[in-house]
Amino acid sequence: MKNKLIIAIGLLTFSIGIFLAYNIIKKYNSKKAIALQKQTLPNFLLYNQEEKPFSAKDLKEDKPICIFYYNAECEHCQYEAKQISKNINAFKNTLVIMVSTNTPKETTAFAKTYKLDAAGFIWLYDKDYSFYKWFGKAVTPSVYIYNAQHRLIKEYAGEVKIDALIKYLDDDQ
């Protein structure tokens, strides 16, 4: 009886260990691949406000790109939107892409509230919750800054002050 119990506990511990180790390797490799993939602008496929597919290939201009992943309900994203609105001139030479899982109706209201509706930004709808496939797990807000050659130069997770963003938009990196 005692031996059976020892073998059962041993096997259970070993199985849990193997299961977790397998999943660690799987997740680690997947994260590593995504981290490598986003070093150059990934060929994402999201939706515009008419709910038509919009991919990275639709970006014609060779301008620096600033991708904001946000949620209209999130306080930090609202702060970020206010800061962008106040410093809108700093983004004039940058292609700003706003991505969220908010519906087009919610996005329109958000853009209007923070006076970003006439800023010429590209508003994309992450209808399928698939943003993570190209950029990895992201908190809201997250910012990805790409240079004109579409190489990632800076990434921020969480709220970020406007100076920290502008610094990378001005830099010719």
Binding site: L20, N23, I24, K27, Y28, K31, K32, A35, G136, K137, A138, V139, A157
Partner: peptide, 11 residues
């Protein structure tokens, strides 16, 4: 390690 790889945004 499993928790770290699951919740950490970077690898």
């Amino acid at each position: 390690m499993f928790i770290t790889v699951s919740i950490s945004p970077s690898t």
